[in-house]
Amino acid sequence: MKMSKESYQILIAEDSAITRAFLVSALENLSSRLNVIEVSSGFEALRQLPRSRFDLIITDINMPDINGLELIGFIRNNPGYAHIPLIVVTTEGSPRDREKGMALGADEYLVKPIDSAQFQELIRKYLNLDAQGLSGPGSKS
């Protein structure tokens, strides 16, 4: 496993503690090599971005300070982060917001309730876990 990374950094921006717990639990069950940073607002996400080299970002749309679309716009317009896969997790909201989110460069747009297996599948895909044989013993989805 020459090229395999030791661990992956994942940022979750979501103001519902329950949803965060759900996502984290799905990630933990997927692999033990995922390091998750949880934040509950857009500001905190902006603060965390320069601190780690994130491999994946998961964000909500409805957050108290800056909205998820603005966060996506910020990430996609910033050369340092533009390449990071970005998954939106939101409660079914305005179709217009969804359109905008995809237009701004979100890779996936998941609507709650989220199917744990489907979510894990996406993570696998974007982190390329299978190719590196990382999903092995840790995964139990």
């Binding site: 857009g42 500001f43 905190e44 902006l46 603060r47 300070d65 800056i66 909205n67 603005e70 966060l71 716009g73 910020f74 996609r76 317009n77 910033n78």
Partner: peptide
């Protein structure tokens, strides 16, 4: 920035309606 923004947002809300706050790349 977050602490300063909170102060700034509060000030602006006293002036009228704060429609959005967005970060620029």
């Amino acid at each position: 920035f977050d602490e300063e923004l909170i102060v700034l947002q509060k000030l602006l809300k006293e002036q009228g309606e704060l429609i959005t706050t967005l970060p620029s790349a």
